[in-house]
Design a protein around this nucleic acid. Structure first.
Lengths: 333, 333
DNA sequence: CCGAGTTGTCGAAGCGTTTCAACACCCTAA
DNA sequence: TTAGGGTGTTGAAACGCTTCGACAACTCGG
């Protein structure tokens, strides 16, 4: 194993000089720097992560706690993860992947100084992890918005506003017989933060616009999506407007609508909450509130970095929704 | 920050005694152990990961290099990842998530002693990472099977056998007009290991059974799947048997078949290569070679652990396919 | 030509563990 | 009674890095 000592000897300088060339925390003459860098390249030196962590109290690792469970929508999760990992790397950070189902994962990686900051996904309205991270030295960023966010920074898509806007888009077009096909029942039962806010927004807007409030959760399996749609059609036979927030269900619902003889948008208008690529890739491009999942992951990292640089402002950032009109909405006939 | 010193003082023993109680590498009397454990609990002590790594040359971290690109099938990837992470945790290992697109990620985490072993996904037939990991002190497990696997352990689903079996299932039923809808063009162009083996197996079996060999790649977007299916139907108008290996395309293809007036399995038999839950969740449960992605991830971890325990046997494990008959195949009329 | 900065380099003291060699103790067999 | 062999515990030396304070060698204004 090649150490900083080997580099120093080879370059004819002291160990500390090598360290300072690497970190840039002191000025180093151009010629010295060059010799050190050559030695590093020749020896193929990589600093020992553990030693570095011990001496500097920094690991350059983030913990990302992601929901590796079947009931959440994999493609969106992946986008968050991708956003986090790629942005972290640009700041020379690595990402440690944790699951929810370890009881004290937070304490272990936090108190054990394994990571410099934590990013938590799939936040619930009253999330048990919040007191845990609050006890930590490391800053934490939540992707999601709990009821009580004291002391932790949050970032998320503004699902409440998104739900309101989606419905308003339909009612503004003149639709009165509308419904929402929402997240899986399990997600709602857990009071996952986004689901709570989504439903709250939808209910408020339905009341505000004076339309009936029909909400049907849908599981991730195709059969469940069909069942949910049929349940909606039973409750609202005259249905002309549908809001869908459920990645997995979207294609199935569109296919089933066709099966049932309902054309989109002539008979039924559909608004989705989904990443742009998903909405765009459907047989009929879907008018949607684009969920910028990749971007939210990146913002989470940026907030973590800011905190590590000393900013102690705990903030909540809600990404405002923008409705992207595609071909799936029209006035009712 | 509470250190092993604090624990030792509190328990009235030496630092090394605490260390040995934690590691179990020396016998400790029951009474001492109890005192130490109480001190640990009372102080909420967690060993410092960096210090531990430095002293023991072990980090208890695996690197998992996963394809965070859009053209691979997210749901299968997620299953691999989930299998790896959960199994790793049962052995007290954490998982560091790396992407492919960092040039020397392998060297950085390997030479930097950040991880004890590496697990590489999305392996290509002639993967440039193989020489990199070969130069490392740490063992590496590939999920996939490159052309030249010297020195590295591999584990994967036997896609070649799976393709042969799928096709043979159709020909044995009497189908002569068959086709394969395969992975996205980009995956094939990169010579992703599984795609290479899949096509090889299919071609061999087609020749062996004396049926035409029609292969159509399909992108992940719904539109592309439709296009692929139509291309197949143009080339083989009398089509009665279809093998599909493409998670994302499967539901779309089934829907489109219905649109085109072809019933499954009365008019067209469909065999898929897909995880059991995906195959099972379709409107018509699909006869499939179940891809045990979760399990493969776990096996990868087990192989890594074995190597870390000193076994230096470099092995290649191919998980044999088993055909699970559901309702999507029947003899041609 | 002197003193005060400025710049570039160095030595050494940690950082919190693990682990090796040593040792004290008790038990047993001779 | 003593030698010999476990048991259980300890002190101290690593492990490879960062960082602080010190200092030599310059530069520059007065």
């Amino acid at each position: 194993m090649v150490t900083i000592n080997d580099v120093a000897r080879r370059a004819g300088v002291s160990v500390s000089t090598v360290s300072y060339t690497l970190s840039g925390k002191r000025t180093i003459s151009a010629s010295t720097r060059a010799r050190v860098e050559r030695a590093i390249a020749e020896l193929g030196y990589h600093p020992h992560a553990g030693a570095r962590a011990l001496a500097s109290a920094r690991t350059n690792i983030f913990a990302l706690m992601a929901p590796l469970r079947p009931d959440v929508d994999v493609s969106v999760i992946m986008q968050f993860v991708t956003g986090v990992v790629t942005r972290a790397r640009t700041a020379d950070y690595d990402v440690l992947l944790l699951t929810q189902d370890e009881a004290d994962g937070v304490g272990r990686v936090g108190s054990g100084s394994l990571v410099d900051a934590l990013i938590l996904m799939d936040v619930e309205s009253d999330d048990p992890r919040i007191p845990q991270v609050a006890a930590l030295r490391q800053p934490t960023i939540l992707i999601g918005l709990p009821e009580d966010a004291r002391g932790v920074s949050c970032v998320d898509f503004d699902f409440e506003a998104a739900a309101r806007l989606s419905l308003r888009h339909l009612t503004a077009l003149g639709h009165r017989n509308v419904a929402l096909i929402g997240p899986p029942p399990a997600v709602i039962a857990r009071h996952t933060s986004y689901a709570d806010r989504l439903l709250r927004g939808y209910r408020a807007q339905a009341e505000h616009d004076g339309v009936g409030c029909v909400i049907e959760p849908a599981g991730t399996a195709p059969g469940e999506a069909v069942a949910a749609l049929d349940a909606v059609l039973t409750q609202v036979p005259e249905l002309t407007g549908l809001v869908v927030h459920n990645e997995a269900a979207l294609p199935v619902i569109l296919a089933t609508l066709r099966d049932r003889g309902r054309r989109v948008p002539e008979d039924i208008s559909v608004v989705a909450l989904a990443p742009a690529d998903v909405a765009d890739a459907q047989p009929v491009p879907i008018t949607a509130m684009d969920i910028p999942a990749l971007n939210i992951g990146q913002v989470a990292v940026d907030m973590a970095l800011a905190r590590l640089r000393g900013s102690d402002t705990v903030e909540t950032r809600l990404i405002a929704p923008t409705l992207h009109e595609r071909s799936s909405t029209a006035p009712p006939r």
